[in-house]
């Protein structure tokens, strides 16, 4: 019979392996860099292993993303380095032309680059709810904010993303 801890290790490893692609994609969006994303996932997994004994088993994806994001935010705060993003003006994002048809052949590969340039709270909300297709409830658990806040961030994030994409097209055309 395996020791009690062996099962816990196995359970952790199986849970973590199943969530690795999601964790990496979220980390990639948070850091904006492939190597930093790998480091962030590795550190988050260590944090998760330490806290595995207190995890109740519900919403493992949200739990792991919460650990990942907290680790990222602590790091960003410690380094006093803000995530790279351009200043976006929501008033500008309401301009009429940003909702006109865009050339998706041109934009397609750039959509994630544009997402990477949004402020962190919007980037994470759009990444979790639109890219990962998590429910608002799961995203709220991951982000530790109320569901209404997640919803609001997703809506505003989409608006900012759209503004960014329209800007990308205009830059490429000019």
């Amino acid at each position: 019979m395996p020791p009690a801890g062996a099962n816990r290790k196995l359970e952790f490893e199986q849970t973590a392996l199943g969530e690795l692609p999601v964790l990496y994609r979220v980390a990639r969006r948070l850091t904006g860099d492939a190597h930093q994303a790998e480091d962030l996932v590795a550190q988050a997994l260590l944090d998760a292993a330490k806290g595995w004994h207190s995890f109740d088993g519900a919403h493992p994806r949200s739990w792991l993303i919460r650990i990942l994001r907290n680790r990222y935010l602590r790091h960003a705060q410690r380094e006093a380095s803000k995530p790279r993003h351009v200043q976006l003006n929501e008033a500008a994002a309401m301009q009429k032309d940003i909702w006109e048809d865009l050339d998706w052949q041109m934009i397609g590969p750039k959509i994630l680059d544009a997402l990477d340039e949004l402020p962190e709270e919007y980037r994470t909300a759009v990444s979790l709810c639109d890219v990962e297709q998590m429910s608002y409830e799961d995203a709220s658990l991951a982000m530790q904010v109320p569901i209404g806040t997640v919803r609001s961030r997703v809506f505003r994030g989409r608006r900012l993303l759209r503004e960014k994409l329209a800007w990308v097209v205009n830059e490429d055309v000019s």
Partner: peptide
């Protein structure tokens, strides 16, 4: 979301998961 992980990245992340699991204490 459908863009897969590069194989090398996936392998390194799996190793990270195994290393993290190894840190879980045996005693409950």
């Amino acid at each position: 979301k459908n863009e897969g992980l590069p194989d090398e990245t996936a392998q390194r992340l799996k190793s990270s998961a195994a290393a993290a699991a190894a840190n879980i204490p045996f005693d409950d």
